[in-house]
Design a protein around this nucleic acid. Structure first.
Lengths: 137, 137, 137, 137
DNA sequence: GTGGTCTAGACCACT
DNA sequence: GTGGTCTAGACCACC
């Protein structure tokens, strides 16, 4: 039990309403978790069927995400076994690099704030509130 | 500055690389600008052709966005004339409502920050920087 | 008509009986045709539906092959238009490199000949015969 | 040479990277060796465990190959003893039949050569080279 | 149990 | 017309 808790610090959070394809949300999310070191080399990831059930998504959708990550070298496939994080991704990226990965979505948020003619202070305050909400989870 | 006021205080910012369909980026952007009062009732918006040229996008894509906004009652079509913001949208939404429109994208950003295991302070600081960059534009 | 003859020097040859997945046969075949210069940069390839009909295969199978080739940088996708050979693959590989691509399958053939205890001369003679048959096609 | 006769004139050559299932590679390889007379009736073949170790393959995979060959009548299983080539396959197939078994792989090679736009002479020369390399092994 | 391949077929975005 | 995404569901190969 403690083992499964340790090796499953990871669950996909998918927004099915978004126009962002599900498989791509999964790809990017997993990339971030590897970048941060939340997923380490050799760690098994949840099976296709398991994730498909959890998210109420077709297994092939999950499989597509995993295949792309394998092609990218981030995951390793082992015949008949669960996939795992590839050995070459041993260490998390340094924080300076990771923070850059946040730039696109924050740029988008800033654009929207500007279009809404909201002052920077209001946008920042809302962001701070949301960040704190998440921490407690 | 006087130039941008004359020919429309308004220009689409489109990311063609995104999976977010172009027409939808346009729709949501225009909605925000109406919500903020940047676009006011009766104001003319750039023609389909003009926008299509500017963004190197197919005219039908622009047309589709405009049609949706017309169906929604946000724009009015006038035979032979440029479309304009509909009369019913006279006043900007109050700030309290507008700020809520920012919540989805900031929620997404917060999720990503958490997956990257970045501290809230780092995320906030980057957001502040980006917001300031935009102001000067 | 002459145009379609010129720009369609290319048809997939698929062996559905093989254990080699169809999409992979397509990927490798297209790679060879680009390597040889039979397919040149900018050239449109047959549409997903067209190929699917021709080969009596599901469109998604063709699509999968094309997607992989796009990820590899060999094909370019253009929204709403047929895919085409990417610009970066302007020139055919030199013959010395191309011949190396033949090594795996010939190595396999040599292994089989050895296991069948056939003399090299017999294997070579059969190969020569088959190569000539193909020429006339 | 005397060594290889003692412990089996026969060793599997498996390509785990191929999409061709491992058990099938084994089946076809063994069939060829029987066809050629390299393996004769009554001859023992290496045990499942031995092969599994050698090839770093799961024992069940080897077992599956052997079972198929048994069902086909090519191998005989004897309780507690090593499997052996069945009595009914006493004599090698005549060379004329054996050479036909080489046709499929050479047809494939010829297709690839054509797609690579390599002249028959170049393909033949490479094949000759590879055949000679193998002889010395 | 694991992942992979393929089909049939719906719906979407874009030219 | 183009390609993309997704679902439902079958069958295969391997551990």
């Amino acid at each position: 039990m403690s083992q499964s808790q340790n090796h499953g610090p990871f669950a996909f959070r998918i927004n099915t309403g978004s126009t962002e394809p599900i498989y791509r949300q999964m790809v990017e999310q997993l990339r971030r978790c590897v970048a941060s070191g939340q997923l380490v080399a050799g760690q098994e990831i949840p099976s296709v069927r398991e994730v498909a059930l959890q998210l109420a998504v077709h297994p092939m959708t999950v499989s597509k995400a995993y295949s792309l990550l394998e092609a990218e070298g981030l995951l390793e496939r082992r015949r008949g076994l669960a996939m795992r994080v590839a050995a070459q991704h041993q260490r998390a990226q340094p924080r300076a690099e990771r923070i850059e990965l946040l730039r696109p979505v924050l740029g988008q948020a800033a654009d929207q704030a500007r279009q809404l003619e909201l002052p920077a202070s209001a946008a920042l305050h809302l962001f701070e509130t949301i960040l704190k909400e998440g921490e407690s989870q």
